[in-house]
Amino acid sequence: MTKTFTQDDLIRYIYDEMPPEEAVELQQAMLCDGALQEEYKALRATVSLLDELLPQSAASSRQGSSSKA
């Protein structure tokens, strides 16, 4: 059965708080679900914008640690 992912799941994924197996499932779901992928992009963009307030060094260290492949 295909799992349905929510915005809360996307947030857990963006913040690296999702177990690896579930993250893979979410990535696969996004490949087949355009709406889910768009929602992910929108949330990711909002989260990334928050980094604007961080000093350069702290922002780049986050990007290195939390960017998704």
């Binding site: 963009a45 990334s48 914008l49 998704k68």
Partner: peptide, 30 residues
């Protein structure tokens, strides 16, 4: 806690749009 974060991000997204603050969904890495 997760739900509050969701509301925060969704509210912020709405406000960004309302105030025409550019956030390009395609310029940020996945």
């Amino acid at each position: 806690a997760l739900g509050r974060m969701r509301y925060a991000l969704l509210n912020l997204r709405k406000k960004l749009k309302k105030h025409h603050i550019a956030y390009d969904q395609n310029i940020y890495p996945r």
